[in-house]
Write a protein that binds this DNA or RNA. Structure first.
Lengths: 229, 229
DNA sequence: CGGGATATTGATTGATTTCAATGTGAGTGG
DNA sequence: CCACTCACATTGAAATCAATCAATATCCCG
């Protein structure tokens, strides 16, 4: 569950999205994490919590990137979201986590008891409002994900993904991807081969450049936006 | 916007999902709709609100079925959800509706001002909690939709859809579908032809029966659940 | 009974998957 | 310092599932 152990001695941080430009989490809730949160380091691919576990804690990413995902019985995996520094995750209204949360890169998070937040919300209307805003924000992301998965071609999905990552990271034109091609594929509902081929396609069209496999430069945002429909 | 006109004289109701078994909306919020809500009838295919309009009202389905959807610039449509009697929709944390809401069949809804609900929530912790629960419930549905669209075959999508509809309607083994094949296709990220063919496939496998095109009997739930992965 | 919308079925095409091989780069140990 | 290795990524060829193009069937409803 909270496998702190695996993270010990794993302080290197190759990939970094320091602070999403627009924090979806309001300050009253953010304060709660700052004031009563405990810290935790997780090594790459370390699990923060598993699907079906009691949702007793909520988390906020401090450093690194976290993914939430779910496995189908035959091994197919759907990545639900990538969480960047500043993002809150694992705060459920239900009793159990419906996804597994793992560190994509070595990561640090702060966590607080869900019951503490809920108690806080009953006393403080601002916190209660933040809980709602946060769920609504997550819902908005989920809806965008649905739009992506529903009717878009591989090229459109990759374009949308790159634009999303660029918007959420600080350097707007060069994106460092902490996640593997498999992670991207499972997020976009494609195979790893199709992701690779499609990236090559965009590179050949001079829409993007690849200084390295995990560093992508957006050369033609107009074209990417056009693909984003 | 609120095109009441179109609904006049359109009182017939062919398809009916009377009251979802498990109402996702808690009672404090439900009371608000009952106490301060105004009624509205909408004819089949009538628009309740459009994408981008001010989200000044929240709605609850009383009768009939409502769909929320979004159009891509080239005409592709993604249906986000089908709302059944008891379901609340259009309650956004943002200022604008991000989807269009239309009546699938002739429908009745009650609506209240969003500002009234928000004001109520600041005074009443129970209402505030309900807002959160409701957003979280909608988020859960969105996540299930993502799982469906991400990695599932046409047969799995249809199976999941039929099971979802059966679970949400009162008669568990015979489902009356108020929506067209096109609506189903746009919800599942398939074409109308694939939906039709896949339904025929399941019929030939004796997994379902079709007394009529829009009435489907689930003969082999075990098989459908197996397909649901 | 007709007419228009809705649904099914058929033939073909095409995008993505699958299966398979090769390439690349970071870390390790000789 | 270089070869080795392992994980990750790319590329190629073939197969497959769903989309597309096209025709026909069915069902409401006037």
């Amino acid at each position: 569950m909270l496998n702190q152990d695996r993270a010990i001695g794993a302080d290197r941080q190759f990939f970094d999205f320091p602070g999403a430009a627009q924090s979806p989490v309001r300050h009253a809730l953010t304060d709660a994490f700052t004031l009563i949160g405990a810290s935790l380091n997780i090594a790459r691919n370390g699990e923060i919590y598993g699907e079906g576990e009691a949702a007793d804690y909520a988390y906020k990413v401090v450093r690194g990137v976290v993914r939430t995902s779910k496995l189908l019985n035959d091994g197919r995996r759907q990545v639900s979201a990538f969480l960047l520094p500043g993002d809150v995750f694992g705060l459920e209204a239900a009793e159990e986590h419906r996804f597994t949360a793992e560190a994509v890169s070595d990561a640090s998070v702060v966590f607080v008891k869900r019951s503490a937040l809920v108690a806080l919300a009953t006393r403080d209307g601002e916190v209660a409002n933040d809980l709602w805003i946060m769920a609504a924000t997550e819902l908005q992301r989920a809806h965008e994900h649905i739009m992506l998965l529903g009717r878009k071609s591989a090229r459109e999905r990759i374009a949308a993904f790159l634009l999303e990552m660029a918007d959420r990271s600080e350097h707007s034109d060069t994106v460092d991807l902490p996640m593997s091609r498999q992670d991207i594929a499972d997020y976009l509902g494609l195979t790893i081969e199709t992701v690779s081929r499609t990236i090559t396609l965009l590179e050949n069209a001079a829409t993007i450049k690849l200084p390295s496999a995990r560093r992508i430069q957006l050369c033609n945002r107009v074209e990417l936006s056009r693909l984003n429909a």
